[in-house]
């Protein structure tokens, strides 16, 4: 991980700054009392791992960039990028279904694409934009009347940190699933409320605090515990961003769904 990527950076008037976090490229311009931001997402190169901290660019950026403007006022001359969790829960679907027998537990490392928060500082902090590094597909979790809108993620549900490739735009989320029922748990999909998670900067990658989900039966709410401390799978340098939606330490949430929508044209 680039050491200066998430530090504060000075933006001189009429200066273009450029930064890259994997497939996400950003341009920031400070002019008068305005900040301009352009975002370019390389949709077909999710494996891009180049990273560069915000630094001045000499050439005028590509004319085809789509810019947004913010009038923030005078005396704003510093900006900062921060990784934040996506704004909705994710439904994680392992590429190969995993089964957890009665009384067992399994730890998975889910690599979630971050959103990048772009803020400027002056007399106060002003958040300009939060841009997803990868646009995830929408999905519905639960039944069509009372479920919730989530992002969909197909994952290999890796069990070891070393198996998970280091990518600058992904944050590794440890999810421990415990089967407390008397039946085998077939994990085809599970929902993680990632808005409740904190983002930490580790030595080599980004981390979230651990989520522990206790499966209590089909169509039952699961007991979900958000471990409050930083994960212990790597040395953690610092906390980067707080949860979007702080929650209680332990709560009951629907995390597994076996709902299937039957029917065709009119059935």
């Amino acid at each position: 991980m680039h050491p200066e990527l998430y530090n504060q950076h000075k933006v001189e008037p009429e200066q273009y700054l450029s930064a890259q976090i994997g497939p996400l490229e950003l341009w920031i311009r400070h002019t008068g009392d305005e900040f301009h931001v352009a975002v370019k997402r390389n949709a077909h190169s999710e494996n891009v791992i180049e990273t560069s901290h915000p630094e001045p660019v000499k050439d005028t950026p590509d004319a085809c960039l789509s810019w947004s403007r913010w009038v923030v006022g005078q005396n704003f001359d510093t900006m900062q990028l921060l990784p934040v969790m996506p704004d909705r829960p994710v439904v994680v679907r392992p590429a190969t279904p995993v089964s957890i027998p009665t009384g067992n537990e399994a730890l998975f490392f889910v690599a979630v694409p971050i959103w990048v928060d772009i803020s400027v500082f002056g007399p106060a902090k002003v958040t300009l934009l939060q841009a997803p590094s990868v646009v995830l597909s929408d999905t519905w979790f639960g039944d069509p009347m009372t479920g919730e809108l989530c992002y969909s993620m197909r994952t290999r549900a890796r069990r070891k940190v070393s198996d998970s490739p280091v990518r600058p735009h992904r944050v590794l989320c440890p999810v421990l699933i415990r089967n407390t029922t008397t039946e085998q748990l077939d994990v085809e999909r599970f929902c993680v409320h990632i808005q409740n998670l904190t983002v930490y900067a580790g030595q080599s990658r980004l981390w979230t605090n651990e989520v522990r989900i206790s499966f209590r039966g089909e169509n039952e709410t699961s007991q979900v515990k958000y471990v409050e401390s930083a994960p212990e799978y790597e040395h953690i340098d610092r906390l980067l961003s707080n949860p979007r939606a702080p929650q209680k330490k332990t709560l009951l949430q629907r995390s597994f769904s076996t709902f299937r929508l039957f029917g065709g044209e009119g059935e």
Binding site: L136, S137, D138, T139, S152, E265
Partner: peptide
């Protein structure tokens, strides 16, 4: 459908030979 992010992954798209 898979490539359109507004199209929900679940409920799955339905294909029917009518």
């Amino acid at each position: 459908a898979d490539k359109n992010s507004n199209c929900l992954d679940e409920p799955e798209p339905l294909f029917r030979f009518v």
